[in-house]
């Protein structure tokens, strides 16, 4: 008779269990909410992120019966829902990128960072990058940021967005080329000094 050690159940098991025991879904929230929050916060800022993250998990909760239990990892599914919800805030997202491009101050990370020097050193690259992100079509920005900020593989990104893997590959390739073009004037050595 000892305290029970937490057992590791994959996401699919948790979701399956939640179909007849709804509160079990809380385990999925506990497991992935911080990751999703970070992604959404980076794209929309902390204020809008709270609602989008909550809506993501509530939507997932309502759609749990449709989840494919063969997929052990639910993170791509959650990212897909979050990305759809982010699409309702496109203007806010682009506004944030433009603010960064215009001022050099990142309105998303400013509340969290205490590395003033880094922020200044990164400003030139950050501004260019933000300007480029603002100009990317959503169909290219979504897969690019799911890989860069969501840490998803191409295959997971394809699953999240419901498009073929080859489509993801080509869109990311084009997005990266566009970013590279806009960043062409930046001296990379400036950015290496920040550590």
């Amino acid at each position: 008779m000892t305290p029970q050690e937490p057992a590791v159940a994959d996401d699919a098991s948790v979701i399956l269990r939640s179909r007849h025991e709804p509160e079990a879904f809380a385990a999925l929230f506990t497991r992935h909410s911080a990751t999703i929050q970070r992604y959404v916060t980076r794209r929309l800022g902390p204020v809008a992120a709270d609602d989008v993250v909550a809506d993501t998990f509530l939507l997932a909760f309502r759609q749990r019966d449709a989840y494919d239990p063969a997929r052990a990892n639910a993170l791509p599914w959650l990212y897909g829902i979050a990305t759809n919800l982010i699409s309702r805030h496109r203007r806010d997202e682009i506004r944030l990128y433009r603010a960064l491009a215009r001022t050099g101050t990142d309105p998303v990370t400013a509340p969290f960072t205490d590395h003033v020097d880094n922020a200044v050193a990164a400003s030139m690259a950050g501004r260019q990058l933000a300007a480029a992100l603002a100009r990317l079509p959503a169909s290219h920005r979504d897969p690019l940021l799911l890989v860069a900020w969501g840490d998803l593989s191409y295959e997971e990104t394809a699953r999240a967005l419901g498009v073929p893997k080859g489509t993801v590959r080509s869109r990311i390739s084009r997005a990266r080329a566009r970013l590279r073009k806009m960043l062409g004037d930046i001296d990379p050595t400036m950015l290496e000094e920040k550590q």
Binding site: A34, Q37, T41, P46, L129
Partner: peptide, 23 residues
């Protein structure tokens, strides 16, 4: 450092923690 590294750096200062309100 390429454009993906720069993107990753943009995310670096965002904490990975959920808000009590969403929870």
């Amino acid at each position: 450092m390429n454009e993906m590294d720069l993107l990753t750096r943009l995310r670096a200062e965002v904490p990975a923690e959920v808000s009590p309100r969403a929870a």
